[in-house]
Design a protein around this nucleic acid. Sequence first.
DNA 1: CGGCTTGTTGACAGTGATCAATTGTTGTGG
DNA 2: CCACAACAATTGATCACTGTCAACAAGCCG
Lengths: 221, 221
Amino acid sequence: MNHSVSHTKINTLSNVHSIDRNDFIIRNCEKLFNIGDRLSGIYRINSGSVKLYRSNEAGQEQILGFYTAGDIFGLDALSDGKSQSSATILETSNISLIPFNTLLKRENSGDYKIFMQQVGINHNRDIDHTMMLLHCSAGRRLAWFFIKFSDNLSKRGYRADEFTLPMTRKDIALYLGVAAETLSRVFARFCAKGFIRIIGHQRSIKILEIDVLRNMINRDD
Amino acid sequence: MNHSVSHTKINTLSNVHSIDRNDFIIRNCEKLFNIGDRLSGIYRINSGSVKLYRSNEAGQEQILGFYTAGDIFGLDALSDGKSQSSATILETSNISLIPFNTLLKRENSGDYKIFMQQVGINHNRDIDHTMMLLHCSAGRRLAWFFIKFSDNLSKRGYRADEFTLPMTRKDIALYLGVAAETLSRVFARFCAKGFIRIIGHQRSIKILEIDVLRNMINRDD
DNA sequence: CGGCTTGTTGACAGTGATCAATTGTTGTGG
DNA sequence: CCACAACAATTGATCACTGTCAACAAGCCG
């Protein structure tokens, strides 16, 4: 396995690289861990993307979050060491495992501070997700999703108006808490109104009216 | 101000008491902090209860969580020191402020570990909330709420089948992501079906069929 | 080519949001 | 102690949104 794979360019949080890493993982579209697995640390994505989810009793997945370069995940194992969610890689990714021991040892107080900030950032993002779920209609949910995805790209220095989604429609639907059919209809509506355009086939999106979408999160169109 | 107020009995997490506290706060039904406030640390509840919320653009609160004895909150200030939510005390409470400096200094690795576990526990509870919002009907949402509240009480050694809710119906509705009117109807339905009984007036609840409620979270009744 | 997954579209019914009115509760001041 | 106001909670009627079921189109991979 080649550990010297080039990293995706990260503008923010590049300082997090100073955290010790005892392990390196590079995989392609496979499961990283399962519910109940004992995690030995916290994961950080250097490149690629991951979905974090749980399955309910009906066997249906419920997606808790999508993570991309620079993000950390696996915090749900902090309480007792066992993960309460599953993680699957959406595309070929480069992921570090930061062992709990490294975090607990903390010979370097700077790393610790950065780690705590990352925990806070993750927490804020989860709150955004929750806020969206608490009161948004299907249209607002998709607008919210596009804005968050776009803003995330632009923070990393990529094009914010044209991108390829790494996840399926169903994954998005499960993340936004709407039926896949409803989501598909909202996609169609956004296209008809000229807010977005679906370029190649399905996954490639061009945002035409980003301000309209941004306003829609709060006010209805 | 009397700092030797007797603590509510806490069975779990009593060891967290070892974390240094640089401040002690005792207040009655008032606001603890606002969105945008710079927090100097993390709060821990010794007794009483608190609601954490944000306001959307329409000026409507959205409740992110209720916290009771033993809980910590204020993690949304970890990223940049400024809180992204507001906190209001629901009843007379005894609350500690654990300064960031204490956490960052960490002369005692045991405290640090316990703190990290608390972060994980908080995170897991937020995930539960999110999971509920992602797919539950109004009936399931209230059942979920009762079960979580009841389980929390029994973990602390209190009666799990009879309790007084510290929050209003509207607060519950905003936490569960349903309209207050809808919630009221579900309350009425639960009473009619004999799942619960409202004892004194409104806030005092007796759970009659806890197993039915517990099953309802997954399966529809 | 044929099976499988992914995504779209249609029809329909049910849940729950909204608006409005009423009742119950709490707190204040005369 | 009562009257009043402000708030909390309930109840009713209506209707839009969205979940569900179903059929179909479109890619993808063997």
